[in-house]
Design a protein around this nucleic acid. Sequence first.
DNA 1: AATAATTTTTAGACAAGTCTAAAAATTATT
DNA 2: AATAATTTTTAGACTTGTCTAAAAATTATT
Lengths: 218, 218
Amino acid sequence: MITLTEENYIKAIYHLGNYGKDIVNTNAIADALNTKASSVTDMVKKLADKDYLNYKKYQGVKLKKSGINVAVNIVRKHRLWEVFLVEKLNFTWDEVHEVAEHLEHIKSEKLVNELDAFLEFPTHDPHGDPIPDKDGKFNKIEKIALSHATVGMVYKCIGVEDSSTNFLQYLDSNSIGLGTTIEIIHKELFDNSVKIKLNTTEMVVSQNVAKNLYLKVL
Amino acid sequence: MITLTEENYIKAIYHLGNYGKDIVNTNAIADALNTKASSVTDMVKKLADKDYLNYKKYQGVKLKKSGINVAVNIVRKHRLWEVFLVEKLNFTWDEVHEVAEHLEHIKSEKLVNELDAFLEFPTHDPHGDPIPDKDGKFNKIEKIALSHATVGMVYKCIGVEDSSTNFLQYLDSNSIGLGTTIEIIHKELFDNSVKIKLNTTEMVVSQNVAKNLYLKVL
DNA sequence: AATAATTTTTAGACAAGTCTAAAAATTATT
DNA sequence: AATAATTTTTAGACTTGTCTAAAAATTATT
Ligand SMILES: [Mn+2]
Ligand SMILES: [Mn+2]
Ligand SMILES: [Mn+2]
Ligand SMILES: [Mn+2]
């Protein structure tokens, strides 16, 4: 049996470690989970015992196959529920993350697979993130952060890094969403803000925003 | 904040105490939750502190208004999820209870109310039990246990007391479901078994079955 | 290479929920 | 009314996950 808490640690390590490929340090996990480093050390030992990851004192952790499997399955559930909430229950994209954080821990193979079918096997969630299929397969999308886009080129918005209500509502109030066409007008070297053009209107976004918005060349 | 465990205690007390109207003893709660009487005493003290119920040592407990509200809301969620699983995700009536036991603890007003609307405000769950509305209102259905039905009369099956997989699969394999017409042929005084007629076939059901099947006069 | 700063681990404590065993109260039986 | 049986509570312990404070290891700086 795997506990809800263990699942959350594994998921955090998966995301922090680039789909489980890299080593993740104690403090990074503590930050992501709003807990203390000492708690992380305790938990990480337990997860190593349970064979979900490799841990050597002072050397950080790396997920093993079984840990990645757990993580991918939680991500699958999280994103399918997000689609369900938006498509069927009139949630907006800034409302779904919090509820999905809880729904992702419901354990029923049949539930997740039937939900997947009911939604007609969606490939992306409301934030543009890919949804792993039954076998854990998914396409990592090629995305460029707005902060790394080239001046003069035209892009389409395809995702966000930050799924917080605050950030998504900021985008809403500026008419930026998935599919929005964005032209890069100017990059300000001084503070790394970026001037962009949407349809007809121009606006300046901060570095923080630019780092959290993903684009694809049009 | 109310914990998942507290919610389960309150729900059990609600069901054991006739919709929260009657006093419930420690051992009954322990039985229902597969726990020990000593654990129940501890938890019941906490629930009394939190004002969900009245507790006097050795006198059992009775839910207060706020406890009943909590219970009704959980029951509402449980039954709505059961409907969702059967109507939308191809679950059978014997598969839903276990999953609903987890889904009922997801805390989001919007989620439950939108789910209710999405399902077109169902009034009964897959086992014939009434679903409380947004305001906690529902009609207690008038039901007669098969064990108390009258020989010679004809009834319709409208619900079950026991929602366990075993019992529901027994009913399935004997072609008994909600809506099935049942005529009472004979009651055996010796073992309280009942001979019934379904459509054309006759069969004998045990007292245990008869107690767990609810009917309404046709 | 030595010292300082940072990161990580350990040690010990705490809250929630549970358990066993024993004591206390209630209820049933004689 | 006294005794026996049953129910409930208390006392103390254990597990999971958390915390603070201090010790140990690693990394950065001089
Ligand atoms: Mn999310
Ligand atoms: Mn998402
Ligand atoms: Mn149920
Ligand atoms: Mn039900």
